Simulated assay, not measured.
Amino acid sequence: MATAVVRFTAAALTDRGRKRPSNEDAFGFSVEDGVYVVCDGMGGAAAGEVASSIAVDEVLRIFHERNGSAVLPRDAEEAVETANQAIYSRARRNYKLSGMGTTLVAVVVRSQHVWVLNIGDSRCYRLRGGSLEQVTLDHSLVEEQVRMGRMTKAEAARSPMRNMITRALGTQGQVTPDCFNFDAQPGDLLLLCSDGLTRELSDSLIQSLISSSLPLEQRCSRLIEAAKKAGGHDNITCVLVQAD
């Protein structure tokens, strides 16, 4: 049986939200190189902005330099490790940036093959056949408690520890991303987002907002505006990747 030819298009949007004085999220993508990235930085004195920007730039740079010759998932994991080292080294050289770090969620595609890597609590979702599925697993204290059956989803949402992540890029000399892979089908829609979106909107509302025939840019805008209307307590970033 012949394999379907899958082509990808994408759109993205980020917003400071309604409460934060600056935007420490960063995103980037290259349809030509088949890579899409969202990062949510952390650290005082604008260090979070530095960390998230470094991570996005490094991952995009590596895949651009490989010029389609990357061996997956090995080179994707190498790109994440290179970004980690760049952030960690920068923080060690500048005490004002000490302790900075960032989450990362990245999608890399080759033909119909999709690899998803994540560190922290930025997420990747897949909308297929009208059903929304969370591809990644959060590296956060409360979500790990939920997975072990020690806390309910409702308790996790109310917990004062819900902002604590257990894995971040750049805070240590080495870090290991989770890696997931699947074959894309025509019609699949991937959503990469920071927790500024998922803290405000339920999965069912996210699904309803992206399940339309509107252009990807408008669907991104709908997500951002809904999250702001719900409170906008954090920076909000989303990248939508459509398989056609």
Results as ranks from 00 to 15, higher is better:
Glu81Val: 14
Gln134Tyr: 04
Ser194Asn: 11
Ser122His: 09
Glu77Asn: 12
Leu60Asp: 04
His233Met: 14
Leu97Asn: 03
Arg150Thr: 14
Ser131Glu: 15
Gln207Glu: 13
Lys228Val: 14
His113Arg: 15
Lys228Pro: 14
Lys153Ala: 15
Leu223Cys: 01
Met151Ser: 02
Gly130Cys: 02
Arg147His: 12
Val146Arg: 04
Val175Gln: 04
Asp203Trp: 09
Leu190Pro: 09
Pro21His: 05
Glu217Gly: 13
Ser159Leu: 04
Arg92Trp: 13
Ile206Trp: 05
Arg90Asp: 06
Ser22Thr: 15
Ala83Ile: 01
Tyr88Pro: 01
Asp57Phe: 00
Glu24His: 06
Ala51Trp: 00
Gly43Met: 03
Arg150Cys: 14
Val146Ile: 04
Ile87Phe: 00
Arg61Gln: 03
Ala157His: 11
Glu32Asp: 04
Thr136Trp: 05
Leu141Gly: 14
Ala184Thr: 11
Gly149Thr: 11
Gln174Asp: 15
His233Arg: 15
Asp244Gln: 15
Ser194Val: 01
Gly44Ser: 04
Leu191Ser: 08
Ala91Ser: 08
Arg222Trp: 13
Thr9Cys: 14
Tyr36Thr: 05
Leu132Thr: 11
Gly173Asn: 07
Arg126Tyr: 10
Asn118Lys: 02
Tyr95Pro: 14
Gly130Ala: 13
Asn23Arg: 01
Ala10Lys: 01
Ala106Tyr: 05
